[in-house]
Design a protein around this nucleic acid. Structure first.
Lengths: 63, 63
DNA sequence: ACAATTTGTCAATTATATTTTACTTTTCGT
DNA sequence: ACGAAAAGTAAAATATAATTGACAAATTGT
């Protein structure tokens, strides 16, 4: 189950996975894995991602 | 930084930490630690907690 | 078509979320 | 006041999130 909302929100900000990973302080592979959907980030990281992309938890991570 | 919204939402459902932990499939200590605020659950667990308490991520975990 | 950037993916390691057991302290009903 | 349930806390073990390095595949600009 890919997270396409995250991918789209990142695209809307014209950021690469690399740039988002730096903005948020994790590795690029972590962002890639989250978008790919094969794991389960911490809430703290989700919140950091939301802030970097000007979205809320519900918008990017609620099902 | 305690999570008082979580504590309140659980109280509103009249559930003990034990009952919530069982509803969600984790240990009681994990629920306790999240309410106490000294760590950082996974998004998957947060979503399960929200569903058990009929709340959304933004209501319980957004800052 | 070519070069450069971005993305996808893998294996090995490190950091940390979660479990288990166990004990103390609060809270609440009777 | 008493006992039982609920909540708070801690140490050690286990599961898994996240890192690092590296390389292939796909995308984008010129």
């Amino acid at each position: 189950m890919k997270n396409l909302r995250l991918k789209a929100a990142r695209a809307a900000k014209d950021m690469s996975q690399q740039q988002l990973s730096e903005a948020v302080g994790v590795s690029r592979q972590t962002i890639n894995a989250i978008e790919k959907g094969d794991y389960n980030p911490t809430i703290k990281l989700c919140i950091a991602i939301c802030k970097a992309l000007d979205r809320t938890l519900d918008e990017l991570f609620w099902e």
